[in-house]
Computed example of a mutant assay.
Amino acid sequence: MQLLDLIETYNAQDATAERLYAREGRRVRGGRNTPNYKQSLLEAARLYEGVVNGRIPGWRLQEAMTTSDFSFLFGDIIDRQMLAAYQHTAVMWRNVARRGVVRDFRAVDRFTLDGGEAILSEVKQATEYPAAAVQDGRYQYSVKKYGKRLPFSWESFINDDLGALRDLPTRLANSARFSEEKFFTSLFASSTGPNSTFFSVGNANLVTGAPALSVEGITSGFNTLAAQVDTDGNPIYVNAVWLVVPPALEITAMNIVNATEIVAADGGGDGTGNNQLRVTNWMRNRVQILVDPWLPIVDTTTGNSAWYLFADPGVGRPAMEIGFLAGHETPELFMKSPNATRVGGGLIDPMDGDFDTDSVDHKVRHTFGGTLMDPKSAVASLGTA
């Protein structure tokens, strides 16, 4: 996708706040919602794209950077391209976890109610209706600030190849996305296998026998998930699940879920000869595959064998939630303000770098958090049997 296409996905109308200032630097995103600003931004984007693609000589960009406003527009280009790349990157965790928004860095509570859904009792004539009990539950988490700096030298900017700038937006976007995905994986997996507090015998969400990924294993996983009941003893309806596997099990998972039919014993024999059932693969409409490349990185013990079933978060009992700080729900890019002053006076171009080393410094900030929630909506197998 070309730079202009990326920028068009994040219009100037979507960034209406004026430039923000912070101790560490100047907020890059401009957001001047005027026709002149939009036109100038488009011209700057065309110039930058032409230089990156080799259609326009690099000195044109260097010359433009000396004009009064181009450095701010150039910052907006990088910021918008980063956000566009971030938004276009495939999202993994949203298939399994609920998305939330929090107001500040303090711990937030997520309350749940369970009960009050037991089967109705018969009420005899002139007798009092029985009272029902409702139990509340609480989950708590807080968001944290994550980020890093990406400095580059004034000399590398002057060089015509623009190697220090071409990949900067994509790298920043990938860094933010990778941070979310690893955090998500680290919620339900640890270095020794599935989270032992969440997936436990007490929660009845470990597949008995730790079967390897197979038709029989997934069947056992479904049976384990189906055996969960609420506080009133009612079954929990789960119509669709996500099968989360590491890359090492991707082909196995695809072969199982995408098979046209399943050959199985009829329940009384060994499944050979005529003693077989050929059934349409019921998993094709019930199971969706999610390949998590972070599993073998986070789980260094069973990361290539363990597999998970998560109920769709839309069922009302999400297994986990990932939350973002209100007003800061996407990565934010900052540029360090110049700390030098020209002897003859006048404004300093941020792309001239700092006083001591002529370095140009960008900072990306991303704020998020999350927590595990209802263990009744997930099962895990070590996959070691």
Score class of each variant (00 low, 15 high):
150 L>R: 15
260 T>Q: 14
6 L>H: 07
204 A>R: 10
313 P>A: 07
329 E>R: 10
66 T>M: 12
256 I>W: 00
83 L>T: 06
367 T>N: 08
178 F>A: 14
334 F>S: 05
156 S>N: 10
74 F>P: 00
54 G>M: 05
298 V>F: 02
326 A>S: 14
212 A>R: 10
353 G>L: 02
369 G>I: 00
207 V>E: 03
307 W>L: 07
10 Y>A: 12
154 W>N: 10
241 V>C: 07
139 Y>L: 09
20 L>G: 11
177 R>Q: 03
279 V>K: 12
88 H>D: 12
248 A>N: 09
190 S>Y: 05
57 P>T: 09
25 G>V: 00
2 Q>D: 15
214 S>Q: 04
296 P>R: 02
88 H>T: 15
127 T>D: 12
237 Y>N: 14
295 L>N: 04
214 S>E: 02
120 L>V: 12
232 D>H: 04
109 D>S: 15
324 F>N: 04
175 S>V: 02
202 G>D: 10
307 W>D: 07
133 A>Q: 15
63 E>Y: 11
376 K>Q: 12
163 G>V: 09
98 R>V: 06
360 V>H: 01
241 V>Y: 03
292 D>W: 03
114 D>Q: 13
115 G>S: 08
64 A>H: 06
145 K>M: 10
64 A>D: 06
343 V>T: 12
294 W>P: 00
43 E>I: 06
374 D>R: 07
239 N>H: 12
115 G>W: 01
51 V>A: 05
209 G>L: 09
263 V>M: 09
73 L>F: 07
94 R>T: 10
59 W>A: 10
281 N>Q: 08
304 N>M: 05
166 R>C: 04
188 F>R: 05
185 T>Y: 00
298 V>P: 01
256 I>S: 04
334 F>G: 00
84 A>M: 01
77 I>Q: 03
339 N>D: 15
54 G>T: 02
272 T>H: 05
354 D>G: 05
193 G>V: 01
29 R>I: 13
188 F>C: 02
226 A>S: 13
364 V>I: 15
67 T>I: 06
272 T>C: 00
278 R>W: 06
112 T>N: 11
263 V>F: 07
195 N>M: 07
12 A>V: 14
211 P>Q: 06
86 Y>L: 04
310 F>A: 05
265 A>G: 14
205 N>R: 02
359 S>L: 11
240 A>E: 13
374 D>C: 08
161 D>V: 08
194 P>W: 07
331 P>V: 03
112 T>E: 11
101 V>R: 15
